[in-house]
Design a protein around this nucleic acid. Structure first.
Length: 422
DNA sequence: TCTGGGGTCCTAGGACCC
DNA sequence: TCTGGGGTCCTAGGACCC
């Protein structure tokens, strides 16, 4: 059996943990640069301001009207709360897998035998324990495959009667839950696939589960075919595949303000190179191919401008200085006078594992692994960007707009909550 | 005053080469 | 006189996830 534990409205509820004054009020959290709403608590949903990924400025007045608390994304806080949540989760099962910042899969192995108290009771125990230790509300979904565990967790939160825990352990329950789920509620089925499925007469999750996998493969792809198998209770997703090193790594961000000069564009792009390269070394990979891109805003009143250029490395590398030099040359191609750049980014593609990569004896290897190891070690200890390539710019001026930022309650000494006793 | 997220994987189609 | 194949690389953008 598999379990999925996921935090309800994670960022919004994380804001409540160390700030008792705002409990009970609607809370919404904004994305980078305070652009869109990305997380909401139950009170915000109840107040009718719970829609995600709408631009903040469009709903600002609605939020004021219901006296909502608005917060910028406090990643320092969320990352630490996520770590605490994952720590607690890892005690519940022999194997756990961190799927995203607020979701943890637990693998109870091939045995279908329930714990002595039964799956439902165990699910409630896990939920209670996370609340007790981390003060975050979660949903628990349990089922024979990851996709069904995900469906159960959907039911735990959205279908009345489950109260936070749902277990798919019989065909009867499987049918009942899937019949009440839209196609887009199924993991791996988005808006477009759902529309195509509906044209073929498949209207909900249960009907998808009943499809012939071979037919689905012909109409769509092996990925959708796997989803159908998983909905039937036949396991196709494997954590080894999920855990496999990434094939592409990106770092991209929109600017707090539009950028129009080449020097700033270069600094921003080199900053992304630094972030992507550090992720690359984290997974012990080398990159053979880099893509750098920049664009203006599709919302600006100007013709859409978007350019991307690639560079192929003579020899696979993970060295920030070599990646930066190549990216710096591509900036000249991306830059164009008069364009109000809104977003830039860097992708590292064609990744290979460092330990199996056979170096080419005819190419001079300019990598400086000792320097990179040293850089990673210093940044790991003293915080990201303690040491960086000078091309990123010493002012570090691309800070995000975070107007409504809460404190770093758990990671900065001066921000520790204080309880005063009389 | 002005404001619209970030990441990964995959593929269509054009350009170019032999 | 007119016609014709197959592979690789690159850019753009779709689709999905949170």
């Amino acid at each position: 059996m598999q379990a999925l534990l996921d935090i309800n409205g994670f960022y919004a509820n994380a804001e409540l943990v160390f700030d008792p004054k705002i409990r009970g009020r609607p809370v919404v959290v904004l994305t980078n640069n305070d652009g869109c709403i990305c997380a909401v608590n139950q009170a915000a949903k109840d107040a009718g301001v719970g829609k995600k990924f709408v631009p903040y400025f469009q709903v600002k007045e609605d939020l004021q009207r219901v006296n909502a608390v608005v917060r910028s994304s406090n990643y320092e806080l969320y990352a630490d709360m996520s770590r605490r949540f994952m720590d607690t989760c890892s005690r519940f099962a022999p194997n756990s897998h961190i799927y995203s910042i607020d979701e943890c899969f637990l693998d109870f192995g091939s045995s279908h035998s329930a714990p002595p108290e039964g799956w439902d009771a165990y699910g409630r125990y896990m939920r209670r324990t996370v609340w007790k230790e981390v003060r975050l509300p979660i949903g628990v979904g349990i089922g024979p495959t990851p996709t069904l565990a995900k469906a159960a967790s959907h039911a735990a939160k959205r279908i009345e009667g489950f109260n936070g825990v749902a277990v798919i352990d019989s065909d009867h329950v499987r049918r009942s839950i899937l019949s009440q789920m839209e196609l887009t509620d199924v993991w791996g089925i988005g808006r477009r696939l759902a529309a195509r499925l509906e044209l073929l007469g498949v209207k909900n999750a249960w009907q998808l589960a009943e499809c012939d996998p071979g037919w689905i493969r012909k109409q769509f792809s092996v990925l959708v075919e796997s989803t159908v198998y998983e909905l039937k209770g036949i396991k196709k997703l494997d954590w080894d595949e999920v855990r496999a090193p990434k094939k592409e790594i990106y770092s991209t961000r929109s600017f707090g303000q539009r950028v129009m000069d080449k020097a700033s564009l270069r600094q921003a792009i080199l900053t992304h190179v630094g972030i992507a390269a550090s992720k690359l070394r984290d997974q012990n990979s080398l990159s053979g191919h880099m893509v750098v891109f920049g664009a203006n805003s599709p919302h600006d009143n100007a013709p859409y401008y978007s350019r991307s250029f690639t560079h192929k490395f003579p020899s696979y590398t993970s060295d920030t200085t070599l990646l930066s030099a190549a990216a710096s040359r591509l900036v000249d191609q991306i830059y164009s006078r008069g364009i109000r750049f809104y977003k830039v980014g860097v992708g590292l593609l064609d990744l290979v594992r460092e330990d199996t990569y056979q170096r080419d004896m005819f190419t001079i290897n300019k990598d400086k692994p000792e320097l990179m190891a040293c850089l990673d070690k210093i940044n790991g200890r003293y915080g990201r960007n303690s040491v960086f390539v000078a091309g990123q710019g010493v002012e570090q001026k691309f800070s995000m707009r975070r107007e409504f930022l809460s404190k770093q309650y758990t990671t900065r000494l001066s921000d520790l909550p204080v309880i005063k006793c009389k």
